[in-house]
């Protein structure tokens, strides 16, 4: 087979084009690696369970505060009404 400038003269022009194209693709498409920090970070994200602390509200304290407020309010109303009754009866007498 005759050769001129490294090209096969008798070859099918389509084949030569394909070979050139394949060479170009080979030169263009090479493996691309992510950064090692990205690889490690993603590995950590995938395999390590996140440490999440869930804090539930303490309902007991709020119930105590509300109930003591209610009791104190009731007592205050009771004493105020007592005082009011006493003063009004004294005023009538």
């Amino acid at each position: 087979m005759k050769k001129k400038d490294g090209m096969k003269i008798d070859s099918d022009p389509d084949e030569i084009l394909d070979e050139n194209l394949e060479e170009k693709l080979e030169g263009l498409l090479s493996p691309v690696a992510p950064s090692s920090s990205y690889i490690d970070e993603l590995q950590n994200r995938l395999t390590k369970t996140p440490e999440v602390v869930v804090e539930y509200p303490n309902y007991l304290i709020s119930i105590l505060v509300l109930s003591s407020g209610f009791v104190l309010g009731t007592l205050l109303l009771f004493f105020l009404s007592k005082i009011f009754r006493l003063t009004s009866s004294k005023a009538k007498a």
Binding site: P31, A33, P34, I39, L42, Q43, L46, T47
Partner: peptide
């Protein structure tokens, strides 16, 4: 841990 190995083998 096994998944981690599969990850390392395939991530790139």
């Amino acid at each position: 841990a096994a998944f981690s190995i599969l990850y390392k083998d395939n991530v790139k």
